[in-house]
Amino acid sequence: MEYPTTGREGDKSRPPRILIVDDEAINLETLAWILREAGFEPLRADSGPKGREMASREQPDLIILDIMMPGESGFETCGKLTADPVTADIPIIFISGLNDVDNKVKGLRMGAVDYVPKPFAREEVLARVKVHIRLRQGMRALLAQQAAKLAQIRDAQQAILVAPDDLPEARFAVRYVPALEAGGDFYDVFPWTATVMGYFVADIAGHDLGASFVTSSLKVLLRQNTGPLFTPVETLKNINSVLASLLRDGKHLTAALVCLNRVRGKLTLVNGGHPPPILVPAGGSPASLLAADGDVLGAFATVQFGRIERRVAAGDRIYLYTDGLIERFGPEAKAREQGLADLLAACVAVAGQPLEAAVDTVMRGILDAGRPADDMVFMGIEV
């Protein structure tokens, strides 16, 4: 049988709730009495399936689970609870008359945090319950602190990214989706000279916090090495020289740098191991990939970069992106070549939309396939 419960996870005024799962009524009532007398709120279920349903719905602070139950054993119930993301982090204490080492070890290997033998003593039960609730509360507090720090890093990282409204003359739209709170992809848009606009997209190897810290350096390096004193190739070579002396453990980045002179209708691309930008002409000519092989940045002291110059006309669009848009892993695995073909087709399909809407439409179609495992930057530029 199942007993009614009250309260919900997140109510800070309620006492900690303990779910007891046991097919013997005497054990349920005895444990409930022990816990209630100590100030806890007991929840009760007399079978594994009912206990799992209640754990999912009520989110107790801890579960006390009997091993020997008819039908679904406590081991089976534990395995299903720890495999379910909704209940996986709820600590489980086994109780059982099977007081041998093998059963204790089996329970701990299945994800339980402790083991109390029958007949159970009041002080032992309460001591173990208190310890594991405190541990869970401490872990949650630690995770909350880490999340707050990540949010600060994310906010700082977002603050250095240029928004289209900040530079309307650049005529670009962009979407940035980090896989973590702080991502390892980076973009920048800036005036190179009075008539040339610079567009930069980079992908730091990995998407951990170490990668995210590199992005703040890129902003400074770009601004120090761009302008009329530098060619685009010199810019990337200078950045590579700095990064090669700083990056460790195989860390590197790919990058694409586009310089666009709208007055002369000239586009210059310098590529450092990055996926090829997509060019969609305004007049209905076929779209194409601006493929230019080049070395990655930060891995080698001496590098060579691919370089392309193209004539462009008003209304043409160039799309820069990171490889999170064209690669999929896991159940939705997709070959890089197929992902690139799909992205090119998507860019062509939105040619009639305003640039902002076009970028949104393409990105929405990619995100509909599932949360990315890698950071994503997608930038559209209109000549």
Rank of each mutant, 00 (worst) to 15 (best):
E123D: 15
S241L: 06
T231V: 06
A151S: 14
L161S: 07
S96F: 01
K106V: 13
E169S: 09
V196S: 02
G227Y: 08
F120N: 05
I153Y: 01
K149W: 11
P60H: 12
P228Y: 04
V201Q: 01
A211L: 11
P70S: 06
T235W: 00
L65V: 11
E53S: 11
V113S: 02
R140D: 12
A151F: 03
D188T: 05
P228D: 05
V86I: 15
T87H: 04
R17L: 07
I63H: 00
P42Y: 01
V129L: 03
P117S: 05
E309K: 05
T215L: 04
V377T: 15
A299P: 01
L367Q: 08
K149H: 10
I239F: 04
A182I: 08
K106M: 03
G380E: 08
Q146N: 13
A369W: 07
M363E: 03
I326Q: 06
S212C: 08
G79A: 11
R248T: 07
V303L: 06
G365K: 06
L142N: 11
A373F: 12
L340E: 12
A179M: 12
R17C: 06
I239T: 01
L344D: 02
W192H: 08
P281N: 10
L367K: 08
E37W: 05
P4I: 13
D155G: 02
I239Y: 05
I239G: 03
P178H: 12
A148V: 12
P331K: 14
A287R: 10
G272R: 00
Q145C: 09
A170I: 03
P191H: 12
I204E: 02
D188Y: 02
C259L: 15
G51E: 05
A287D: 06
S73T: 15
E123A: 15
I90V: 15
F305Y: 01
L290N: 08
A255N: 06
E123H: 09
N225E: 08
G138V: 11
S56T: 15
D295N: 04
D22Y: 05
M363Q: 06
G138T: 14
A83P: 07
A45M: 03
A292Q: 00
A38G: 01
E58I: 11
V196E: 11
E382P: 07
S285L: 12
C78K: 04
V189E: 09
D249N: 14
R248M: 04
G265Y: 07
I63Q: 00
E9S: 14
A349Q: 08
R109P: 00
L246G: 00
V270P: 00
